[in-house]
């Protein structure tokens, strides 16, 4: 039973993390190849602040705030560079984060931080907490997508220049997307820190950034149910089948590659086409 609870908790954290990137990349169209860094900022902030005595879950708020500050800075760069250039710039921020953490003794350097205090909840209680956060973030995402903010984000993702012509303050919208998305990534990181209770730079590298991006893309960029589904499945698959664990990366990458070749709009796009097809035939 204990193993299933651990797995389910990991799945909930993945959902929160994937939805946070979906907000930036899916809703607002700003590609990020360094999103694991914000997850990392959240994890380190939660670890250090709870070690310093800040009570759970207040340290999650600190994690969100710290990640959002970094998100704001990276968001500023999205005002200067776009598309492919932004992809490379965000990748650069990811490596910069790792490089700094590795050299800082107060962040544990290569060794990371261990013996992070637990949440004080039972394993089951913590799962309940993580699930509640995941549901809340999913509902918030679904609301946001249909609000005027989501409407404006979609316009910016579609065509920034036209968005300006209809009076949108594109810069502020992008910054808000980065701040909201990275704050949620920070919460996911904080949840992760209390979950595994040991963190090191290796958990926040480029591969993790790609893994979360693949959840968003396999789920279907911008589709909330699609991304939730992909995050659940892609997290569970390798942990369920130990055989796959060894081939986890190969599986991930093959899936991603095939998805791009066959249907680049992911599960969300598939579902949309299926339902529209049915509507047309009836």
């Amino acid at each position: 039973m204990g193993y299933e609870i651990t797995l389910a908790t990991s799945m909930c954290i993945s959902v929160v993390f994937a939805l946070s990137l979906n907000l930036i990349t899916g809703f607002c169209g700003q590609i990020s190849l360094g999103h694991a860094a914000f997850f990392g900022v959240g994890a380190y902030t939660a670890a250090l602040s709870s070690k310093a005595g800040l009570a759970f879950p207040l340290d999650l708020l600190a994690a969100a705030a710290a990640a959002a500050v970094f998100g704001f800075v990276v968001g500023l760069s999205s005002l200067r560079v776009r598309h492919d250039f932004l992809a490379i710039t965000t990748m650069g921020f990811g490596f910069l984060f790792l490089g700094v953490v590795r050299q800082q003794d107060w962040l544990g350097g290569e060794m990371g931080i261990s013996a992070i205090p637990g949440s004080g909840l039972s394993k089951l209680g913590y799962l309940g907490f993580a699930a509640a956060v995941a549901v809340a973030v999913a509902l918030f995402s679904a609301y946001l997508k249909r609000s005027w903010l989501g409407f404006s984000f979609a316009a910016i993702a579609d065509d920034e220049d036209t968005a300006r012509v209809v009076a949108l303050d594109v810069a502020r919208y992008k910054l808000l997307a980065f701040v909201l998305g990275t704050a949620i990534a920070g919460i996911a990181g904080g949840l992760y820190a209390h979950h595994v209770r040991f963190i090191s730079p290796d958990s926040f590298g480029f591969v993790e950034s790609i893994a979360v991006l693949s959840m968003v893309i396999v789920g279907g960029i911008g589709s909330v149910p699609g991304v939730v589904f992909a995050a659940l499945v892609l997290t569970a698959l390798p942990l369920w089948f130990q055989v796959i664990e060894d081939y986890k990366l190969l599986l991930y990458s093959a899936l991603l590659f095939i998805m791009m070749q066959l249907c680049e709009d992911g599960i969300g796009g598939l579902m949309r086409r299926l339902t529209q097809g049915r509507r047309r035939t009836t």
Partner: peptide, 17 residues
């Protein structure tokens, strides 16, 4: 453009494996 970028990253990770 993101489609080719993601496909390329996927191919690269697969190649390492």
């Amino acid at each position: 453009p993101y489609v080719a970028l993601i496909a390329s990253i996927a191919l690269f990770i697969a190649s390492e494996e």
